[in-house]
């Protein structure tokens, strides 16, 4: 590299393209840097929960129930005296894990289904009618029905939400595939004899990334909210486990006397969703060589 810099040596380099490129992009876009900081700090807090949470999130202490925020309990305590701050920290682990895994699984299935039905006309009609059928149910209704069938466990929450979100990913991906597969560079790939799977994965998929990334960022947020809603309705994870939704469920009965039980996990959700959306927009720019800002 050192000798060749004059010679415009610009060999591909994952680190420079994506890591340095990402920081350059954040230097230009304040919104993306805010999103990045929010997401990063949320993740770090969630990972460090066992070390920094001042109390055991499951420890019941009836002597200290429904205390307002104070120096000992900065977010107050709930109806059985558990520390809300500790529960919000531990709840971040469950909520963020749910969001991340739901995004991963629904993207895997949604992208494959979308690519196949967008590229092959014949299966398109069958697959898409099936997806339409799944999408005809409201998100929460389908998720609740599935939770009722599967049983209330965290893994089932993730499975149910992935099944609910996959058709939405599939529909977006299929839409983009339909336009991308008509483009001249796909035709060029056919002319040079590329096999179908290479056309789909090398030429079509990378050009579908923009909407997938944008959709992922708000799907993450939606999954966090959906998990919260499921737990709030009692169809999610068992009530004693802390997730942001569960904490709020517990707090709803006491909202007039102990609003902190609902407000703080609510704020956590807002910050998380906001950060993800801001960061997601930036990620989309990073995935595009035309906007990456490094030559």
């Amino acid at each position: 590299m050192t000798n060749n810099q004059k010679n415009q040596e610009v060999a591909p380099n994952f680190f420079r393209d994506f890591v340095v490129g990402g920081f350059k992009l954040m230097g230009r876009s304040r919104m993306m840097s805010i999103g990045f900081v929010l997401v990063l700090s949320m993740t770090i807090l969630a990972l460090l929960a066992p070390f920094i949470s001042p109390y055991d999130p499951l420890e019941i202490n009836p002597m200290r129930r429904l205390q307002s925020p104070s120096r000992e309990h900065i977010m107050g305590t709930d109806e059985v005296g558990r520390d809300v701050f500790s529960r919000v920290l531990w709840g971040a682990r469950i909520s963020l894990l749910t969001g991340a895994l739901v995004v991963v699984f629904s993207n895997i299935f949604g992208i494959i289904i979308g690519l196949v039905s967008g590229y092959y006309d014949k299966v398109d009609k069958v697959i898409m009618r099936l997806m339409d059928g799944l999408m005809a149910f409201p998100i929460m209704l389908l998720a609740i029905a599935m939770m009722a069938a599967l049983g209330a466990r965290l893994s089932n929450v993730i499975i149910a939400l992935s099944i609910v979100f996959a058709p939405r990913v599939a529909r977006v991906v299929r839409g983009v595939v339909l336009t991308v597969r008509e483009s001249a560079y796909v035709e060029a790939a056919i002319v040079v004899g590329a096999p179908s799977w290479k056309i789909i994965f090398i030429h079509i998929l990378p050009n579908c990334l923009d909407p997938i990334i944008v959709q992922s960022s708000f799907m993450f947020a939606q999954a966090v909210l959906a998990e919260a809603a499921l737990s709030f309705l009692g169809a999610g994870i068992p009530p004693w486990l802390p997730s942001w939704g569960n904490i709020m469920t517990g707090g709803r009965l006491y909202i007039s006397v102990a609003p902190w039980m609902t407000i703080y996990p609510g704020i956590a959700i807002i910050i998380c969703v906001l950060g993800l959306n801001l960061f997601g927009d930036g990620l989309r720019d990073l995935a595009d060589p035309r906007l990456r800002g490094v030559i």
């Binding site: 591909p12 483009s183 001249a184 560079y185 035709e187 060029a188 790939a189 056919i190 002319v191 040079v192 004899g193 096999p195 090398i202 030429h203 990378p206 050009n207 990334l209 595009d288 060589p289 035309r290």
Partner: peptide, 23 residues
């Protein structure tokens, strides 16, 4: 697919015929 090696195409539009995400 083998035959395609022998017959190639140069496109009209040089902007849409190159995959923008590929070096």
């Amino acid at each position: 697919r083998k035959h395609r090696r022998n017959m190639q195409l140069i496109f009209q539009d040089p902007f849409s015929s190159l995959n923008p995400r590929m070096r």
